[in-house]
Write a protein that binds this DNA or RNA. Structure first.
Lengths: 237, 237
DNA sequence: ACCATTTATTGATCTGGATCAAAGAATGAG
DNA sequence: CTCATTCTTTGATCCAGATCAATAAATGGT
């Protein structure tokens, strides 16, 4: 059976092995995307969903870049993540059947919509899919706990270094340059995510620039000294 | 069929409806605990598991109190949670098949050990169980994101108020007093969890005491003014 | 291309919480 | 019960990062 002949969202997708289908066989992938995948474009600045929206589907980012943020009753907002190709949006909504954050496209993007009811049913048929999905959920927990560590015990400079190193790693896994980053988010978004103010983000980027760790031109960042950045992380200094 | 006659760990358990079996039928609960539950006692101060241990089982706290903490390479440590009866430990380990944090008993405790392989198999047979478990994982993600909000955008006083309100709510759900709290953890543990220093925890508790919000006698805390505490949370003042 | 608006940088000053220090209270092992 | 150890409180001082402020650079709509 030649899978490339079939009309399959996943099959032609270059980030398949970073996405939900990771670790599934070709036949399993086919079953997955024939049953429930649906490609949806989202314009820059538009929400994929908003807090309170009823939960129907998960979304795998196909192309583009998103941010998720939660809104405190007093108006304060906290960016909880930035998602790029292959990453899954909406996992938090499974708990309550309503979305608990806003997901906003930071550039023109496309997502694969995954009907969650159907997905759960397919999980009953394919233990491998269910197993992988448990890992996906668990990985999200680990990611969040990493951010708790960052917010709870790192200084501003370390947080920003960790952020850049993490972004670079994720770009690199997607075969994009690990040194040439284009930030899709504002300094304020970065600050919110890292628990610091936008002025502090800007100042530290400038300092990293002065220290020859980075070249900073607005949102275009080139990592000049990746080891130097990493050194900031692994030393408690 | 009279389930109370059967030897079932869950059936006689008073916190059943706060635990994994939440929402399952009696028959489903029976299937669950006959297949894989195993009660394990843990002494105060002992680890239930440690970072790096191979992952075999999840653990539902039956009685007692735990903390989980992650260890940064440079020696810094971050408490990621406190778990009481009915709460599940080990969800983060599903992602890598190894535990990624330490879980330490803060008092003499008992857990229900749940063999995860068997649990996944049972999930394949009982879609309801699987569905509930997806929700459990998702709820943990939501919890972690709430802590991100706390760490990223609240001041020390608000963090501590949020912590106490949350503890009181959880005790209350377990039919324990919502005003009379006995803290099982040190000021340092609380501080680590909240991203502040132990001296700051102590000072703010003293201040709350002075403001008649609390009565503080070491680890014995009585909440005198729950509305006042809540007011600290909902105002950005 | 132009103007309005949003975003970014940088400086000056202020402050919440960290750090350093020392005394006091609770806990646990023998 | 006693002593050692760990935990907690409180005070004095300091500093990383917040806040306030002003300018400069992007960005987007018409």
């Amino acid at each position: 059976m030649d899978f490339s002949e079939l009309k399959s969202v996943c099959y032609g997708c270059s980030i398949r092995e970073l996405c939900l289908p990771e670790g599934l066989t070709d036949e399993e992938v086919l079953l997955l995307d024939q049953h429930m995948l649906h490609r949806v474009p989202i314009r820059k600045g538009d929400p994929l969903y908003r807090t309170g929206d009823p939960f129907k589907s998960l979304y795998a980012v196909s192309t583009g870049f998103f941010k998720t943020s939660i809104l405190h009753e007093d108006g304060r907002t906290q960016v909880t993540g930035f998602q790029m190709a292959g990453e899954v949006l909406g996992l938090d909504a499974i708990s309550t059947d309503h979305h608990l954050c806003d997901a906003i496209a930071l550039e023109d993007s496309a997502v694969c919509e995954i009907d969650f009811n159907q997905f759960e049913q397919l999980g009953q048929l394919m233990s491998n899919l269910q197993h992988r999905f448990n890992k996906t959920l668990s990985r999200e927990i680990v990611r969040d706990q990493g951010i708790m560590l960052l917010l709870g015990s790192m200084r501003a400079e370390e947080r920003l270094a960790a952020f850049l190193v993490n972004l670079a790693k994720r770009f690199s896994a997607r075969r994009q340059s690990a040194s040439q980053l284009v930030l899709r988010m504002t300094r304020e978004d970065i600050g919110s995510y890292l628990g610091i103010k936008l002025e502090t983000v800007s100042r530290i980027l400038s300092r990293f620039h002065d220290q020859q760790l980075l070249e900073v031109r607005g949102r275009h960042i080139r990592i000049l000294d990746p080891l130097g950045l990493n050194r900031l992380l692994n030393s408690s200094a």
